[in-house]
Write a protein that binds this DNA or RNA. Sequence first.
DNA 1: GCCAACGTTGGC
DNA 2: GCCAACGTTGGC
Length: 141
Amino acid sequence: MAYWLMKSEPDVFSWDCLLEDGQNSWDGVRNHTAKRNMMSMKVGDLAFFYHSNIGREIVGIMRVYKEHFPDPTDPTGKFVCVGVKPVKAVMPPVTLADVKADPKLADMALVKQQRLSVQPVTAAEWAHICKKAGIKPDQLK
DNA sequence: GCCAACGTTGGC
DNA sequence: GCCAACGTTGGC
């Protein structure tokens, strides 16, 4: 069981779009580190949905329901995507400013590797953010 | 809109 | 294989 954080610009694909669709293929990633992370994902892993650029905040939690497969939007066939489903909204959202202001979260890739769009989250970071957001582990079943 | 960080490309 | 040039991401 691993934890992740995945970024999307909300004017391209938002948390509300995911809710509306019920599920989504996380395609369009063109970075090899992000690709490696997606290839490590297992069914049942949980991920924060982060709105980059506009909002700059964690707005939801989703679950991996389909492990990596070739990204249909990649003509070179080099990149992969995973299937995700929404689990729970993070409301109010946990903002980037919140994360930066919290010493326990200072080492998050979100802060240290600004441009990485699919990144691992440690169990401690995951638990801490959920606690901030008032989300209990049994709400993520 | 600016620009820092950083990934990629291509000449050598 | 190095590195300068260039493109993209994403915070501010």
